[in-house]
Amino acid sequence: MKILIIQQKMIGDVLTSSILFEAIKSKYPDAELHYVINTHTYQVVENNPFIDKFHFFTKEHENSLKATLAFGKFLQMENYDAVIDVYSKTSSNIVSFRTKAKKRISKYKWYTSFLYTHTVKEGKEPKTSAGLAIENRLSLLEPLNIKSEVIKPKIYLTASELQKGETILLDNGLDLTKPLYMIAVLGSGINKTYPLKYMAHVLDTIITEQPNAQLIFNYIPTQYSHAKEVYEYCKPVTKNQIFLDLFGKSLREFLTLTIHCTALIGNEGGATNMAKALDIPTFTIFSPWIDKKAWNMFEDGIRHKSVHLQDYESKRYNKIAHYKDLKNDFKNLYENFRPEYFKEDLTEFLDQLT
């Protein structure tokens, strides 16, 4: 059996969808499994023992219908028995159909269902602590007669990578006997980024509760000015505990640093999902227009905890049809999502780590 799974775009999505490979191999250990992903996401699934081959959806494919059609035609030569289109957008619709696989599986959308041999309706409420992102992906395996137990995404680091992360931290003056927190200081965009002054308040709370704690930020060089702005808003005592110039210079290096951290704290996004896949505790601040039920994976209120404006102002959400209806009002919503709301929650999270 030869199966292709398609999951383009974001790092967190690519990581989360990787659970399908483990689930399929558990039922069909001899199956050959291929993965279509965007080039920049590869490092999060590098060394995954359940994935046999990668195919990369590039910028050229994104910007050209002709290139996308050619990519689908190229994949047709692999003679797949089944294709699972997790992404389920126009480009993957085209690629899936062009493979001519005997089984083509995706989530149900009335306007694309004719392109697939099997479609699966997504759940709206989670049935387990795994959350909807996990449960809805696993439901795509039903046409293959696979009913999988809940699987957690995993990241596979080598021994040399583990050593590299430790060396970087020690060379930069960190003390690994003291608490060390990776701060997801920025989201994937402004509408998913907790206000910078508020984030500084969160960092001040961490240092107030744990004066010996050390803080490192997750950002890329082009985001330095925003990371520095958060730093400047912090109290002097907090600034002393921030190693601002230390950051992962690649996705893989970020992982080698994060695995040595006590926890990851900050904006919801790929960094949170990666920390969970490394079995690192997380405290996540959700954007007010994102549905928390979809991405608060494996939350237990202890090792993994998240906060959302809806947790404190539930009436505001009573009349909305879809969370995305609030997207254009994100600034006002964030302004109302004051750090005082969840100060006690953060303190309890920090207390149980020590």
Rank of each mutant, 00 (worst) to 15 (best):
G270M: 03
N336T: 14
M10G: 08
Y334R: 03
K107D: 13
H40L: 12
K127T: 11
D245A: 01
Y80V: 03
T128E: 03
F74N: 14
E232V: 02
T208Q: 13
F56R: 00
L157A: 07
L264W: 00
Y108H: 15
W295F: 14
M274C: 02
L115Q: 06
E166K: 15
S91H: 12
D325H: 12
P29M: 07
F349L: 06
D204S: 04
P29G: 07
I134H: 06
N145F: 09
I19A: 04
V95K: 04
K305I: 01
N79S: 12
A159R: 08
L255R: 02
H322E: 15
S225T: 10
M10K: 14
K124V: 10
L174S: 06
F21P: 08
Y181S: 02
S148L: 12
K154S: 13
T90L: 15
H61W: 03
D311W: 09
K154W: 08
L15D: 08
I207S: 00
S26F: 02
I320N: 12
L186M: 08
L65G: 00
V95R: 02
P153T: 06
H61L: 03
L278N: 03
T90C: 06
L257R: 08
L141C: 12
K147V: 13
K121D: 05
L115G: 04
Q43R: 07
N93P: 02
K147F: 10
I151E: 02
I216T: 00
Y111Q: 06
H34R: 06
A31Q: 05
I220L: 13
D291N: 15
K235N: 14
V45S: 06
L75E: 09
K27E: 07
Y116T: 10
K324G: 01
L353V: 05
E299H: 00
